[in-house]
Computed example of a mutant assay.
Amino acid sequence: MSDRHTHVQEFFGTRAAGWDDRFPDDGPAYAAAVAGLGLREGDRVLDAGCGTGRALTPLRAAVGPSGVVVGVDLTPAMLEAAVRAGRDRDGRLVLADVTALPLRSGSLDAVFGAGLVAHLPRPAENLRELARVVRPGGILALFHPIGRAALAARQGRRITPEDLRAEPNLRPLLAGAGWLMTSYVDEDARFLAVAVRED
């Protein structure tokens, strides 16, 4: 396991138990983001880096009982917290690395990733792996329940021009990985970039 992976596991592992308590008001933001993706009954969707599974319930509501919802995370403690919250009823939880997914190529209709980009060790390569598991025309939603400026202020830092989530950086990054960005929202209440898997 790389140093980056070890760091991610340690960071989230020590915070998993109280994660949902730290951000108790994020539920509606997750639900609104998922509702805007145009998912259909029966769709197959991955929550990449699912953490405590806050997106699983709205994803299940969007794809219905005939759909498939899979949550993948690298940190066992996060998945354990998802189970304690009962979110394993809404999707299958898998301990795995989003940089090397145990999924067939083209097997999904959509990928949802909350707070994901900042934790990818090799973003260009890792976004290509997400493209691999999605059918042509499928979607990728990169979400955060708080915008870039508000998040930076919360963390006591400034946004830098190098921020991968800045539109001028994210659009070509996605394009190089096989995704065409179709919408980009960065406001205090949420960050949501949506892209379509190109042929």
Results as ranks from 00 to 15, higher is better:
residue 3 D to Q: 14
residue 3 D to I: 02
residue 7 H to G: 10
residue 9 Q to G: 01
residue 10 E to D: 15
residue 13 G to I: 03
residue 13 G to K: 11
residue 15 R to N: 09
residue 15 R to E: 10
residue 21 D to E: 15
residue 24 P to T: 08
residue 26 D to N: 09
residue 27 G to F: 06
residue 29 A to E: 11
residue 30 Y to W: 08
residue 33 A to E: 06
residue 37 L to N: 08
residue 37 L to I: 08
residue 40 R to I: 04
residue 41 E to L: 12
residue 43 D to C: 04
residue 45 V to T: 10
residue 46 L to E: 00
residue 47 D to M: 00
residue 47 D to R: 00
residue 48 A to K: 01
residue 53 G to W: 10
residue 53 G to S: 09
residue 54 R to I: 07
residue 57 T to N: 01
residue 58 P to W: 01
residue 58 P to Y: 00
residue 60 R to D: 02
residue 60 R to M: 03
residue 61 A to I: 03
residue 63 V to P: 12
residue 67 G to N: 13
residue 68 V to A: 08
residue 69 V to L: 10
residue 72 V to C: 09
residue 73 D to G: 04
residue 75 T to C: 08
residue 77 A to T: 08
residue 77 A to W: 04
residue 79 L to E: 11
residue 85 A to C: 05
residue 86 G to V: 09
residue 87 R to G: 06
residue 90 D to Y: 02
residue 90 D to K: 00
residue 91 G to S: 00
residue 93 L to R: 06
residue 97 D to R: 02
residue 98 V to N: 01
residue 99 T to F: 02
residue 102 P to M: 04
residue 103 L to A: 06
residue 104 R to G: 15
residue 104 R to E: 15
residue 108 L to Y: 11
residue 108 L to N: 11
residue 111 V to H: 01
residue 111 V to E: 01
residue 114 A to F: 00
residue 116 L to I: 08
residue 117 V to P: 00
residue 117 V to W: 08
residue 118 A to I: 06
residue 118 A to C: 06
residue 120 L to P: 14
residue 121 P to G: 12
residue 124 A to E: 13
residue 124 A to W: 12
residue 126 N to P: 12
residue 128 R to L: 00
residue 129 E to L: 03
residue 129 E to C: 04
residue 129 E to Q: 07
residue 130 L to D: 00
residue 131 A to R: 15
residue 132 R to W: 01
residue 132 R to M: 00
residue 136 P to E: 13
residue 136 P to S: 09
residue 140 L to G: 01
residue 140 L to Q: 07
residue 141 A to K: 01
residue 142 L to T: 05
residue 144 H to P: 02
residue 145 P to Y: 01
residue 151 L to H: 12
residue 153 A to H: 10
residue 156 G to D: 07
residue 158 R to S: 15
residue 162 E to Y: 10
residue 162 E to C: 06
residue 163 D to R: 07
residue 169 N to V: 07
residue 171 R to N: 05
residue 174 L to G: 05
residue 181 M to R: 12
residue 182 T to I: 13
residue 185 V to R: 09
residue 189 A to G: 14
residue 190 R to M: 12
residue 191 F to C: 08
residue 192 L to T: 14
residue 193 A to S: 14
residue 198 E to S: 05
